[in-house]
Amino acid sequence: MARVFLMQTRAEMLKFWRVPAFAFFSLGLPLIIFTFFGLRQATQPLYPHAAITVGTYVMASMAAYTVGNVMVFSFGMALAIERGQKQDLLLRASPLPPAIYLLAKVVNAALFALVALIVLFVFAHFTASVNLAAGTWVTLAARLLLGSIPFIGLGLGFGYLVGPNAAPAVINFVYLPTAFASGIFIPVNQLPDFIKGLAPYLPLNPFVELGWNAIGVNTDRAVSTDVLYLVAYAIGFFALALWAYRRDTAAKFA
């Protein structure tokens, strides 16, 4: 069983890295956005007398954006493509346990997200002089990787609902505005009023708060409350994914 899992994970990784556009989009785009938002006054304190610099804050925001993006996109796109090519047909007739299929995708996505985080951290360290204690780097990365579980559910939901051609557009159309409305690029208090009221309830807001909190920002909510929100979102998104999966398979395999 361990061998199946290793082989399946290896196959997932090979497929992944052979799509340079995806690798660039996931690794490169956060760096470009960081350059726009994070390099201006990078070493200035976030607010007067704050210990946290603007660069560090923007890096934590982009870290959340990156991890969430990898999860939603890798699951959403991969499943939409696999369904479009009818790969699910042969897999379903094969002895591959579904749990291993899913777990291999999770491990692959988590590793990819970790690589994307390291690339971002190194970039921010050298371009914006971001310096954190060793434990803080680890806490930031660990919190975001664990906190991204709801976005796996969301990605799975997209993957079973949307076709392969529409998937990139639909996922971007949902993910990018949500990131803006959650205060990832622009602080929540600078958003239009009607979004300001909505922001705390969007899934990316408690997620990015986990990151901000890790670097020492006083967030609006306690970490425990953020975790509670994310657990609720995880339940909701996985329920959506399960419904979408059943809807998809009921038609094909009834």
Partner: peptide, 30 residues
């Protein structure tokens, strides 16, 4: 399922794996 193999009409396989990689992957299921 470990006791049978199947060749289906209209099924697909990952396009971005090499022939041996895909064969090795399916071998690991049995």
């Amino acid at each position: 399922r470990r006791r049978f193999g199947a060749m289906l009409q209209e099924s697909g396989v990952p396009q971005l794996l090499k022939v041996t990689e895909l064969v090795e992957l399916f071998r690991s299921y049995y």
